[in-house]
């Protein structure tokens, strides 16, 4: 794509496609490897960033636009879910400890 870097051969591979591919793979590995949900969501945004880059490399700008619109939505939805679940779980633990205290 970007032939102005054409002096060194290696740099020819550093175009928008391969860079986004690298980002995507980092994001994917990150999502699976990181244990905490919040970290996962952050890696998900990285993954999606790479994906948008890929689409831009394909010059489908309208799809990129839609993807760019939907990615934050997915993130927000996951965030809501995580916060809500967190709250429920905390509450449950609290109830449990209270019950244990009551029993003791």
């Amino acid at each position: 794509m970007d032939h102005k870097y054409g002096k060194i051969n290696m740099l020819e591979f550093i175009n928008i496609t391969s860079v986004s591919a690298a980002i995507i793979i980092i994001g994917a590995v990150g999502i699976i490897a990181l244990p905490k949900p919040i970290d996962k969501v952050i890696m998900l945004t990285i993954l999606q960033g790479g994906f948008v880059g890929m689409i831009v490399a394909g010059k489908y700008l309208d799809v990129a636009m839609a993807a760019a619109l939907f990615d934050p939505i997915a993130t927000v939805i996951f965030l809501i879910g995580i916060i809500k679940l967190d709250e429920i779980r905390k509450k449950k633990i609290k109830q449990k400890t209270q019950e244990e205290r009551f029993l003791a």
Binding site: I24, I32, K40
Partner: peptide, 13 residues
Amino acid sequence: PLIRTINTEIPAI
């Protein structure tokens, strides 16, 4: 299940 759902995003991409 939450983590599993987040992981399904990868095949989707």
